[in-house]
Amino acid sequence: MSYQEKKNIVSLISSLLIFGIYSFYVFQKYQDRSLDQTDAFSFWGAFILILIPVTIAAKIIISIAFSIFYNVTTNEKEPSFADELDKLIALKATRNSHYGFVFGFLLAMGSLVLHMQPSVMFIILICSGLASEIVGVVSQLYYYRKGV
């Protein structure tokens, strides 16, 4: 398995772990509180705004740790640049990821049309964010393995 494939697998696992741990922590903290409409919007806004920097920071740390671990275990240096294949795969994966998010966004809007709770809309939006990230990483894995 190549460095790029291993990196994508680590990225996939870390995304799921970060999202899972963060969601578990937040919902444990707030599960007993009943939120009125204004509080609910504030809660979901904060959930998303805090999730973004937490994910970025955790991913940077995990990426550095993986790099060190890879160097130590394989005695190989990770590629220091992205070549034409890497760029093409990243572009295609980003496109697939965007399709995933747009689908989730439309579902979220659909939930509002069907007069569901606003929290349902936020949950769909957040889940589609996670799903789009997974789609992106799995696409990269697929393209590295099967070619473009």
Partner: peptide, 22 residues
């Protein structure tokens, strides 16, 4: 040629057509 080893592997397998330049 200035690419990663992964790119050479993919080209050899016939899973990627390189750019004209490469």
């Amino acid at each position: 040629v200035g690419v990663t080893r992964q790119t050479i592997v993919t080209i050899e397998k016939g899973n990627y057509s390189p750019s004209l330049e490469l």
